[in-house]
Structures are given as structure tokens and as C-alpha cells.
């Protein structure tokens, strides 16, 4: 076989607590990101993503502690995004145990930060995260959770960040995010077909068929989802099974 399509649950974390997370009944503390990470590790997730949405700057150090504690008990790849401004921010997360670091707003303000991270730590750990909305001409980069327009073409921006050294592109449709109406497949495919690096589809998953579409129609290498896993509607195993049924190569994790 070939490299497997990846299923990536994403946890929103604020000040060290899960804001939007899974309802695994067996968890002692469902608000603890480490407990949630363990549950996903046991469930056979291919990777895990923490998105740090901590508002205040003072609480930013808490994500490092979360990452450190997660890395001590989870032996799966971990991407951490949110608030990464500099190569030193990336370094702190990588040393804490993150395998990949996602840069978003900072790379809008200063794309060169992607090159700085890639040069110091390697492209393999540098994820460029792009939030996009449809316009009449194509897609535009938005920041601040999709509220602030930038005037930057999202496709050009994503491709430029890959050229600067990003080893992966995490592409989120802010039109679809939270709508459960499926990925913006045209957006995902437009980026995926024009770049040599893996693309992660994000934003809008409402069911397992959306994950399949992300890979088969969107040409993504990985699919990220939050609520369908968190609310217990689907398990990672269900996602793998749906992808396999569509002929997509997925792994068969050895589960506890």
C-alpha cells in the first residue's frame, strides 16, 4: 500500500482546558486535554491537533504544560497551533513535545516566519494554517477566527508558504467552519492540486461522508474534524471504515 490518509481530531484548548472536546464517558475530567488526547490515542487517531485559543497573553504558557504532559503519555504525532508568532515560539512547543507547529496569523503578517521555522527545525514540523473565505474571484485569507479580511488571495498565500518551507498546509474554510455542511472541496482541491506538500482539509465536517469527500474529491492527504468526534457521533474507527469502504488507504491501528 501507500501512505495512509490521516484522520485528525482537533481539540480547542483555552488556558489549558478543552473548550470544544469529546464526550468520552469514561473520562474523569473531560476538560483536561491530556485525558482527551489519551482517549484519542487509544481510539487509534492517526494524529492529534491542539488549537490553543487562549485569549490572554499571560496564560499562553499553559499550552506548553499541556503539550509536555500529553507527550509523556501519548505516542502519536501531535500538531499544535494558535498564537505561534516566532521561531522561538515554535521551538518552545517542539521541545515540549509537539511534532508539528501550525502558524496562522503570524504568517499573514510576515510570511518569512515560515521560512525561519523551516530552516531552524525542518519543513517536516512546519505547518502553515490558512483560513479562507470565498469571494467573487476565488478565496481570500481571513484572520481573527474568520472575522477580519486581509485582501490576500488564499491560494497564492498557501502556495507561497509552501514555497517558503511549510511542510504541510492546513486549509480551513471559514464559510463552512461550524456549519456541518462539508468541506469547501473546491478550495481544498485547488490548493492540493497545485502544491507538492500534503494538505489537511478543515472546516465544516458534518458526517463521515464529508471526510471521504475531503480525500477523494478534495485530494487532501488528511482530514481534520472536531465536533463529529467530540459529540460521539462517530469514532475514529468509523472514519477509517468509511474511508476504507471508499477505497482510500487507511491504517488498521492495533487498539487497546
Amino acid at each position: 500500500m501507500t501512505v495512509r490518509a490521516r484522520v485528525i481530531p482537533c481539540l480547542d484548548v483555552a488556558a489549558g482546558r478543552v473548550v470544544k472536546g469529546v464526550n468520552f464517558v469514561e473520562l474523569r475530567d473531560a476538560g483536561d486535554p491530556v485525558e482527551q488526547a489519551r482517549a484519542y490515542d487509544a481510539a487509534g487517531a492517526d494524529e492529534l491537533c491542539f488549537l490553543d485559543i487562549t485569549a490572554s497573553h499571560e496564560d499562553r504558557g499553559t499550552i506548553l504544560d499541556v503539550v509536555r504532559r500529553t507527550a509523556a503519555v501519548c505516542f502519536m504525532p501531535l500538531t499544535v497551533g494558535g498564537g505561534v508568532r516566532t521561531a522561538d515560539d515554535a521551538r518552545a512547543l517542539l521541545l515540549a513535545g509537539a511534532d508539528k507547529v501550525a502558524v496562522n496569523s503570524a504568517a499573514v503578517a510576515r510570511p518569512q516566519v515560515v521560512a525561519e521555522i523551516a530552516e531552524r527545525f525542518g519543513s517536516q514540523c512546519c505547518v502553515a494554517s490558512v483560513d479562507a473565505r470565498r469571494t467573487e474571484r476565488g478565496w481570500e485569507v481571513f484572520t481573527h477566527g474568520g472575522r477580519r479580511a486581509t485582501g490576500i488571495d488564499a491560494i497564492d498565500h498557501a502556495l507561497r508558504l509552501a514555497d517558503l518551507g511549510a511542510g504541510e498546509l492546513l486549509v480551513t474554510s471559514m464559510d463552512r467552519d461550524g456549519t456541518r455542511s462539508g468541506y469547501d472541496l473546491e478550495l481544498i482541491r485547488t490548493v492540493a492540486d497545485r502544491t507538492g506538500v500534503p494538505v489537511v482539509a478543515s472546516g465544516g465536517v458534518g458526517g463521515l461522508s464529508d471526510l471521504v469527500d475531503g480525500i477523494v474529491t478534495g485530494h487532501a492527504s488528511a482530514v481534520l474534524a472536531a465536533s463529529i468526534f467530540h459529540f460521539g457521533e462517530a469514532s475514529v474507527a468509523d472514519a477509517h471504515a468509511a474511508l476504507a469502504a471508499a477505497g482510500v488507504p487507511v491504517r488498521k491501528p492495533i487498539l487497546d
Binding site: R4, S221, A222, R251
Partner: peptide, 30 residues
């Protein structure tokens, strides 16, 4: 086939070795 080669893929032994067995492992390299 994207580069970096990122994700789970087969480990397929081509020679006898006591430690290396067939299975799926995580790769992340260019």
C-alpha cells in the same frame, strides 16, 4: 505522492532482522 512523506505507512522487511517486523509506522521526512 507528496513530500514530505508524512503519515502512517508500511514497514516491509526485505531482510531477516530480529527487531524489524511488518506493520504500520509513522513517517515524517523529505
Amino acid at each position: 505522492a507528496k513530500v514530505p512523506h508524512m503519515g502512517w505507512n508500511d514497514v516491509m522487511p526485505v531482510a531477516e532482522h530480529a527487531l524489524v517486523r511488518p506493520g504500520e509506522a509513522y513517517f515524517l521526512h523529505s
